[in-house]
């Protein structure tokens, strides 16, 4: 698919298995779900963007959400994080209903997200970006903020944590630069590192690979795998099938707002409904053959 995949090591990382109960089908119950939703729907005018009957996201695993453009993946993300409200349905996170909970409270519950179009805070330095992520800062309260002695200790603590994370993401040399001066890929890294400052339980990444150059892909993948190692749950939207195959323990496929299939990565990819809906019937065909503008030698033809 993309050239980035060429750099991936041949052996896929160890997958978490045994996540579901009963036969695999769309909406299958999970052993230990962190998110469950029922009858969640969202319409934009006449368009049904999301209409999910039942879906559970397994805890402590990496779940990929895939689907063609306009399948409702980002809308589902927005609904889950409180950035948008569904028209119907119930959904809860770690046993707590999220109905009517504003986005910032959802984040405080330990569910942090990144955005498809990276939102680095451009005119803040990289370090300030990081510090902003930390939770429970007394100095962020108006009344306390004008008395530095009340928050200096916490600030020190946050700074150490931020520097450590920056080192892990190889951004430590950039800490005093404006975030605007970072490259697109570095901003993705910064956004992910900043999200980790909140000590999340569930990390939701909206297209973490979009616009990232091949050299960075490898380290981004490592970082995502590390999140799982540290006990976090990851849910991500991605178009890069190789990344999905490589790191996802569970794959949920959406098309036209509905969940059309789910299951472990390898099995889902074989599902004819998925190939039809998402990969298209030309997935292994050279683009030249599809468009008919380049004549190819007949050997690879399907």
């Amino acid at each position: 698919m993309s050239s980035s995949s060429a750099k991936l090591p041949g052996k896929p990382a160890a997958k978490t298995i045994g996540l579901h109960v009963g036969t695999i089908r769309p909406g299958v119950p999970k052993v230990d779900p962190i998110i469950t939703m029922d009858n969640v729907s969202r319409k934009f005018g006449g368009l049904v963007a999301v209409d999910v009957e039942h879906l559970e996201i397994p805890r402590g695993a990496i779940t990929a959400l895939i689907g063609p453009n306009g399948a409702g993946k980002t809308t589902l993300f927005n609904l889950l994080t409180g950035f948008d409200k569904p028209d119907t349905g119930t959904w809860n996170f770690a046993g707590k209903s999220l109905a009517g909970i504003p986005a910032f409270k959802v984040a405080q519950m330990g569910q942090v997200r990144t955005f498809q179009l990276t939102k680095a805070l451009s005119l803040l330095t990289v370090l300030q970006n990081m510090k902003l992520g930390a939770k429970d800062q007394r100095g962020e309260k108006l009344m306390f903020s004008i008395f530095p002695f009340l928050w200096k200790a916490k600030e020190q603590e946050i700074e150490e944590k931020a520097l450590e994370l920056l080192k892990r993401f190889k951004l430590d040399t950039k800490k005093d630069d404006f975030a605007a001066s970072l490259s697109g890929g570095q901003r993705k890294l910064l956004e992910m590192a900043r999200a980790l400052m909140t000590d999340p339980v569930l990390v939701m990444l909206d297209e973490p690979m979009a616009g990232v150059n091949p050299a960075l892909t490898q380290s981004l993948l490592e970082h995502v795998l590390n999140l799982k190692k540290e006990g976090m749950t990851v849910l991500f939207v991605e178009h890069d099938m190789h990344m999905v195959r490589h790191i996802a323990d569970w794959v949920v496929v959406m098309a036209e707002g509905r969940v059309v299939a789910e299951g472990p990565a390898d099995e889902v990819m074989k599902n004819p409904a998925v190939i039809d809906a998402y990969l298209g019937s030309h997935q292994d065909t050279d683009l030249g053959t599809v468009t008919g503008r380049i004549t190819l030698p007949p050997k690879g033809k399907k």
Partner: peptide, 8 residues
Amino acid sequence: DAVRALGK
């Protein structure tokens, strides 16, 4: 929105 996503 970025700040909101961080729980503020």
